[in-house]
Design a protein around this nucleic acid. Structure first.
Lengths: 251, 251
DNA sequence: CGATGATTTGACACCTTTCAAAATTAGTGG
DNA sequence: CCACTAATTTTGAAAGGTGTCAAATCATCG
């Protein structure tokens, strides 16, 4: 936990970025990568449960999640929390803070994570020197909004079972896109409390719904792994249609 | 209604754009405005209730709402509808469609409206030739996401009275930002069905909640006008904190 | 092997939805 | 400007999905 600065100066060579090498993202030119390298101010490791961005703080970083999972959330004064979306490796966020004085949302690590933090003051330079990267940023931001839209539809209009089914499918799909396929399902480091906060449900009711779907043989969650058995039924239940997305850019 | 093409060729001179002249938006250079002028493919008038963007269609425009109000929404196969956010004059949307083959959401006019539709094929040119406008687009998109975030928090974690209070305040604030202040409150062309769809509530319960707040003297809706009487109580009830936003760009 | 946190269960209250129908308001044609 | 119809807003009553409370069972970890 206190190794937060152990690798402070030594920034990974972006051209060797493990995310990039995995080939899930759109390619960049060497010049672009060089710029991104300079754009990067810091890499930071954060423990599971630790804050990456603090809600209501007056400064906020823009960053890419390089390893681990996290989530973006907002809270009400009395503590009620709504998870806006989950962040998986490769996801970029923090731009919205550009608009306000205080961070309207927080980001918290779900697992031990590692983030690449960029120089906000160079954001404008990025747009000027590499329009393509500016375009990519817009793209990344729009992708995030698409997910939030989907979540809003869920929370606003789907029943509890439908919401849970939807979340299982959505997370499963996203996880599959970034990890090697195994017969043991996908990594799933999300607790029931997190699911509840993401779906606008209570913990108890989330648990009961989850148990119900699982006992129907639709899926299984065990040891931080999610296996989908009956994607067909889950899809039908949640009316979830995967949007065919192009390959995401990486910054 | 069938005057949809009456002013087809004659595009407004963007430098004389009524929105721009009103001075609510960040300024642009003459060169930028000239580019925007060329970027604009068409202006279109749509009737209240008509579609501006069709959900699930395979083509989608990017546009700025110049006059009137509209809303962005998604539906489930059985017809349940969730309004994602309301669009007021000056709002820009449609970028997300860039990411998918099918429009993930629809946009419908709430009042007679007029939209400036841009040449999607020139979007990339915009980023290249006018990085500043690219930056603005990112900004506009991020602003929209901020609103969706707020709505997700509401729908997920606020009670019905809290949601309604929140919506009244939020809309009132946005409306005030674009119209002359009058003693008669702000323009409010939103039906209870729309409120229900935006808040994830049923029509009946929306009505009862609205009536309750109104009978408590917190607000009044009459003749498409909303008057807030007790902003203090409404704020306290909804835990709504206005985010101090910078002046929005206009494209 | 305690201790702390996560998951499960059961019971019950209650907020919200659904169903039905009346009362208003808005829109349209004569 | 008055009918007439459609749409919106209101109300009441009852059903039901979710939340809250409490407590037990499991799991994880130093």
């Amino acid at each position: 936990m206190n190794n937060m600065q152990k690798d402070f100066k030594k920034l990974t060579d972006c051209s060797q970025c493990p995310l990039r090498l995995r080939g899930n993202h759109a390619a960049n030119t060497p010049e672009e990568i060089e710029f991104i390298q300079d754009f990067k101010r810091e890499e930071r490791s954060v423990a599971a449960g630790a804050a990456i961005l603090r809600e209501h703080s007056t400064d906020g970083d823009i960053f890419t999640l390089r390893e681990g999972w996290a989530f973006r959330y907002r809270t009400l004064p009395d503590g009620r929390r709504q998870i806006l979306n989950f962040l998986l490796p490769g996801d970029f966020t923090g731009l919205q803070a550009e608009l306000t004085q205080v961070m309207p949302y927080g980001v918290e690590a779900l697992t031990p994570a590692r983030v690449c933090i960029f120089r906000r003051e160079n954001l404008w330079t990025l747009y000027q020197q590499f329009p393509k990267l500016g375009y990519d940023l817009t793209w990344l931001n729009a992708t995030e909004e698409l997910i939030v839209d989907e979540n809003l539809l869920s929370v606003g209009r789907r029943t509890a079972p439908e919401r849970v089914a939807m979340l299982l499918l959505h997370i499963s799909k996203r996880a599959q896109a970034i990890e090697e396929p195994t017969s043991e399902g996908v990594y799933f480091p999300i607790s029931q409390q997190h699911i509840a906060d993401a779906l606008g449900l209570s913990l108890v009711h989330t648990n009961k719904t989850l148990r119900r779907l699982e006992s129907m043989g639709l899926h299984q969650i065990r040891n931080n792994r999610l296996k989908i058995f009956r994607a067909d039924i889950l899809k039908n239940l949640s009316a979830y249609h995967e949007l065919p997305l192009r390959r995401k850019p990486l910054i």
